[in-house]
C-alpha cells in the first residue's frame, strides 16, 4: 500500500488516488500529425522499468491531478508536484 505525498494535502494512502498514466504531451496541432504520429501519442508508451513520471488524481481528497515520479520496480515515490512541475531528473 503505497503512500503518496499530495502536494496539497500531505501524505495519503494510494487508495485515495486514481491513476492517470504517463499523460503524454498532446501534439500542439493534431491535424498536422500523421496517423503514426497521432497513434504514438494516443497509444505508445515508454513503459520504463525504473523511474516513471506519471499523473495521479487525488480523487478521494482534493480532486487535484498531481505529477508523481515513481520507481515502477521498487514503488519508491521519488517526488510529487503539480502537473508539469516535477524537477528535472
Amino acid at each position: 500500500m503505497m503512500l503518496i505525498h499530495c502536494p496539497h494535502c500531505g501524505a495519503r494512502d494510494v487508495t485515495e488516488f486514481t491513476y492517470g498514466g504517463a499523460g503524454a504531451a498532446r501534439p500542439a496541432d493534431p491535424a498536422a500529425a500523421d496517423d503514426p504520429q497521432w497513434a504514438d501519442y494516443v497509444y505508445m508508451r515508454d513503459n520504463p522499468r525504473g523511474l516513471h513520471d506519471e499523473l495521479w488524481q487525488h480523487s478521494a481528497g482534493c480532486r487535484r491531478w498531481i505529477a508523481v515520479r515513481r520507481n515502477t520496480l521498487t514503488h519508491d515515490v521519488i517526488a510529487t508536484a503539480r502537473p508539469g512541475e516535477l524537477p528535472p531528473r
Partner: peptide, 18 residues
C-alpha cells in the same frame, strides 16, 4: 510482462504498459 523492455533494446515503442 517485459515486452516494452526488450522491444526498447530494438528501438521500438509498444502500445503496452506493464
Amino acid at each position: 510482462g517485459h515486452s516494452g523492455q526488450v522491444a526498447a533494446l530494438a528501438g521500438l515503442r509498444l502500445p503496452i504498459e506493464s
